[in-house]
Amino acid sequence: MLDDRARMEAAKKEKVEQILAEFQLQEEDLKKVMRRMQKEMDRGLRLETHEEASVKMLPTYVRSTPEGSEVGDFLSLDLGGTNFRVMLVKVGEGEEGQWSVKTKHQMYSIPEDAMTGTAEMLFDYISECISDFLDKHQMKHKKLPLGFTFSFPVRHEDIDKGILLNWTKGFKASGAEGNNVVGLLRDAIKRRGDFEMDVVAMVNDTVATMISCYYEDHQCEVGMIVGTGCNACYMEEMQNVELVEGDEGRMCVNTEWGAFGDSGELDEFLLEYDRLVDESSANPGQQLYEKLIGGKYMGELVRLVLLRLVDENLLFHGEASEQLRTRGAFETRFVSQVESDTGDRKQIYNILSTLGLRPSTTDCDIVRRACESVSTRAAHMCSAGLAGVINRMRESRSEDVMRITVGVDGSVYKLHPSFKERFHASVRRLTPSCEITFIESEEGSGRGAALVSAVACKKACMLGQ
């Protein structure tokens, strides 16, 4: 009897593995994704193909990295998701002549009506938060230079001027797309009239992360975010950046690689679950690469896999709870928690219980395998993109072996128990001629924006502006 049951459990697990095998990517698959990513990057950089390229390769006008001589107080704003952060950054000489960066910050959550109302409502709310922060720190009387981390696709015309191309991540505030974001912020500050600010720089969160990590390690020339969304930036040779005049030196390019796949480059790798996630998203047909990796989508992918296993009578005796059938019910943090389970399955059992399920031991094991399959594919897909960037940098610099540091931020990278190990191992397999160091950014977005502002202020002083 026991043997029969054991055989049935083994057969069930084997069927589960057959279904989950769809998520496995072979090294040849990853090399294919990497080569296609490089081709799209090239198209994004070139003037004649930029418009139709899915990977936009947006110039950021960040050319210099901090040298350690900029000092002063800077205000930093960070808008990239449902939370908005205001930070005071003091850049100065530390002990023994070292450079020191001290920060104080406060988080504000953005109400739904500000995210989806008008641009005026959104930026009025942001300036209200700045006003509140300055009151708390008794700094209303000071006109501070301000660095703005704005983590949406922007076409820069200068370091302090950028046109919002399109909202992502659930934002829909009308009247912002096609307009200068810094102008919208300046107008809102003017409307309030109770404080003055000098907006000197606007950067993407990947750029802010790279600059913040450069402060720790001067070989950091790539910034990457794996959180709600997924994106990367890197220092490109100016001669390859056709959208900006000049051939000397390097400029940081914001790849906006989340949109890779929007022209069909990933079609052969998309599964039924991916198509369902895409169809029910706020932007169907867009940001397809990001939807395979980002935390906004990972939990939902797992939920759809679990429903398939229920329908195949391989999980929960073929019956799903009402909660499990509800879109968004299986949160991405559950994926991390399930994979963090120590082996007694308590954590998995508790999560499934909150979803109205009474799982068996085998159910718990199957749910864990589903989570591992989805998150491992995410790590491997992400590795193909980064390997594409790094191999490109090595080739354009004609280096036999390139040493490089990548600064990384984002909740999936930082909080998932195995993502970074799987990701690092896969990147290294795909970049055999590179020695890569990964560092995690601390308060990256805010500190990085302030350091970019410090560079901009120093330049302005040198130019006598």
Rank of each mutant, 00 (worst) to 15 (best):
E52A: 09
R186Q: 09
E279M: 15
A188G: 04
T118F: 14
F316W: 04
R192G: 01
A456H: 03
W257C: 09
V253N: 00
V305M: 00
V244W: 00
T332A: 12
E312R: 06
L184W: 04
Q138V: 08
N391I: 05
V412A: 09
K136P: 03
R429E: 11
P284A: 11
V33W: 01
D160G: 11
D42F: 09
V389E: 01
A173C: 05
G446N: 14
E339R: 01
L352H: 02
D187N: 02
N240V: 09
S127C: 05
L276V: 11
M462E: 15
M235Q: 01
F171R: 13
H50Q: 10
R325K: 14
V91S: 06
C233M: 00
Q347L: 03
F419D: 01
P59L: 01
P153F: 09
C382K: 02
F438G: 01
R191T: 04
K104E: 08
E331S: 13
V33F: 05
T255K: 01
G94F: 07
R85I: 10
N204M: 07
R369I: 07
T228K: 04
V71I: 04
T65M: 08
H380G: 11
S375L: 09
G227S: 03
N254I: 01
H50M: 14
V33R: 01
P432V: 14
G147A: 09
E40Q: 01
A460N: 09
A188H: 01
G229D: 15
R428F: 13
G246S: 04
R368V: 06
E300Y: 01
D78E: 10
A188L: 01
R397G: 08
S441R: 12
L243M: 05
V89A: 02
M121I: 13
E442S: 14
N179I: 06
A176S: 01
L164H: 12
N166K: 09
T209S: 03
M210C: 00
Q219P: 03
C220G: 01
L386T: 14
W167G: 14
D409N: 10
L2G: 12
R36G: 04
R447G: 12
E96S: 11
E237G: 02
P145A: 10
D187E: 09
M393T: 14
M210T: 02
S109I: 10
I19Y: 14
K169R: 12
D274F: 08
V62N: 06
L451V: 11
N83D: 09
T376M: 03
V33L: 05
V33I: 07
L164R: 14
L164Q: 13
V401E: 09
V406E: 00
G68V: 08
K346W: 08
E395V: 05
F74R: 00
A232G: 02
G299H: 05
I126V: 12
E440I: 07
L304P: 00
R422E: 14
E128G: 08
A6K: 13
A449N: 15
T405W: 01
Q287F: 15
A114L: 13
S433P: 11
Q26R: 06
A119G: 08
L314S: 10
T342L: 02
Y413I: 10
A10L: 15
V181F: 09
N254L: 07
V253P: 00
S131W: 05
R447I: 07
W257F: 14
S281R: 07
Y297M: 14
L79K: 08
L415R: 12
C371V: 05
N283A: 14
I293E: 08
D194F: 14
N83C: 10
G80C: 11
R7L: 13
G229S: 11
L288M: 14
H50P: 01
R377Q: 00
W167I: 13
S433I: 06
D217I: 11
V182D: 11
M139W: 07
M139K: 11
L144I: 13
K56A: 07
M402H: 11
K56N: 11
M57W: 00
V305G: 01
S426P: 01
M251K: 00
K169Q: 14
I293H: 14
E290G: 11
K414S: 12
L134P: 00
V374T: 05
A320G: 08
A320V: 14
N240T: 01
V222M: 00
R63W: 00
Q465E: 15
T103W: 05
Y125A: 09
K39F: 09
Q239F: 04
M462R: 10
K140G: 06
S433R: 14
G294F: 09
N179G: 08
G356F: 09
L79C: 06
T103R: 05
L301H: 14
E265Y: 02
S445L: 12
I225H: 05
T255A: 12
E51M: 07
E40S: 09
I404W: 07
G80W: 10
K346Y: 13
H105V: 11
E372R: 01
K31C: 07
E399M: 15
H141K: 03
A188M: 01
I19L: 11
N283H: 11
E237P: 09
E221D: 04
R325D: 06
N313H: 04
A11T: 15
E265M: 11
L357G: 08
T361H: 15
G175A: 02
V91C: 07
S76Q: 02
F269G: 02
G343I: 01
G97H: 11
R403W: 04
G285S: 09
F133D: 01
G246A: 04
K31G: 08
H317S: 15
M251W: 02
A53M: 03
K56W: 03
G223E: 00
V412H: 11
L415H: 11
E157N: 14
R308T: 05
L77H: 00
I366H: 06
L79W: 09
V455I: 14
A460F: 15
Y297H: 09
L276F: 15
A53K: 09
L288H: 12
I19T: 15
K13E: 13
I366P: 01
G246W: 03
S445P: 10
E48T: 15
Q98E: 13
E268K: 04
S54W: 04
F152D: 13
P111I: 09
M462W: 12
T376F: 05
C213A: 01
I390F: 08
R325L: 14
F419I: 04
G318D: 10
L463A: 11
L271H: 02
T118V: 12
V302F: 08
G328M: 02
F269H: 04
E435N: 12
D160H: 15
S375W: 05
T116V: 10
N313G: 08
F152A: 13
A259P: 13
I436S: 03
T255G: 08
K142Q: 12
T376H: 07
L315S: 07
R333Y: 09
Y108G: 03
N179C: 12
G97K: 14
T49D: 13
T255R: 00
H424C: 14
H424I: 09
E290W: 13
R275I: 15
E242A: 01
T149K: 11
L324S: 06
F438H: 03
